Computed example of a mutant assay.
Amino acid sequence: MLTTSSWWLKNMAETFLWLGLPARDLFEQANIPFRTLENASNRYPQDNVTQLWKLAEQASKDVSIGLKAGNNLSISTIPVVGFALLECQNAEAAMELLIRYQKAIGDTSSVKLLASSSSQAQLLFELNADGRPLSRHSYEAAMAFSIKLARTISGHEWAPLQVQLMSAQPDEQTAQLHRTIFHCDVLYNQSNYSLMFTREINTRQTRAYLHQAQNSDHRPLTRLIQLMLEESLPSGEVKREFFAKRLHISEKTLQRKLQGEGSCFTDLVDEVRKARSAALLTASHLSITEIAFLCGFSELSAFHHAFKRWFQQTPGQYRQQNANRAD
Rank of each mutant, 00 (worst) to 15 (best):
E96I: 13
Q58I: 01
I78S: 01
D62V: 09
A59E: 14
N39P: 00
E92M: 09
D47V: 03
A56N: 08
T77R: 12
A69K: 02
S76C: 01
E96T: 12
N39E: 06
T50M: 11
Q58D: 12
M95S: 07
E87K: 15
L98S: 10
N42A: 10
K61D: 08
E38P: 00
F83W: 06
Q89Y: 06
S74H: 12
A93S: 15
E87I: 02
N90Q: 09
P79F: 08
P79W: 13
I75E: 05
G70Q: 07
I65F: 14
L85K: 10
I65G: 04
T77M: 04
K61H: 13
R43L: 01
V80T: 09
A93K: 12
P79T: 04
K61V: 05
S60L: 05
A91H: 14
E96R: 15
Q58N: 07
N39M: 04
P45Q: 00
S41C: 01
A40K: 11
A94Y: 13
L67Y: 14
A56G: 04
V81H: 05
V81S: 07
L85A: 07
A69T: 14
G82L: 08
V49R: 13
L97A: 10
S60I: 02
L98A: 11
W53V: 01
W53D: 11
E92V: 04
F83Q: 10
A56M: 06
Q46L: 15
V80K: 12
L97T: 05
S64A: 12
A94E: 02
S74W: 04
N71C: 03
S74M: 03
N48H: 13
P79Q: 09
N90W: 14
L73Y: 09
L55N: 05
N42Y: 03
C88V: 06
A40Y: 02
K68F: 14
Q46C: 09
S60F: 04
T77Q: 07
Q51S: 05
S60W: 05
E92A: 08
K54T: 09
G82T: 01
Y44D: 00
A59D: 04
N48P: 00
G66E: 08
P45Y: 00
L85P: 15
T50H: 03
P79A: 09
A94D: 10
D62C: 14
K68T: 03
P45C: 01
S41R: 05
N42R: 12
A59V: 02
M95V: 13
C88A: 12
N39F: 06
G66I: 08
L86D: 00
G70R: 09
A59L: 10
A56L: 09
S64Q: 08
S64D: 02
A94K: 12
A91E: 08
Y44V: 04
L52M: 10
S74T: 07
L55Y: 11
I78H: 04
C88N: 11
M95A: 07
F83D: 10
E96H: 11
E92G: 13
I65A: 06
Q58V: 01
I75N: 11
T77I: 03
L55E: 05
I99W: 06
M95K: 05
F83Y: 10
G70F: 09
A84F: 13
A94H: 11
L86P: 05
Q51E: 07
E38G: 05
A40G: 00
A69D: 01
I78E: 03
A69E: 02
D47G: 00
T50A: 09
Q46G: 01
N71F: 14
T50G: 04
A91L: 03
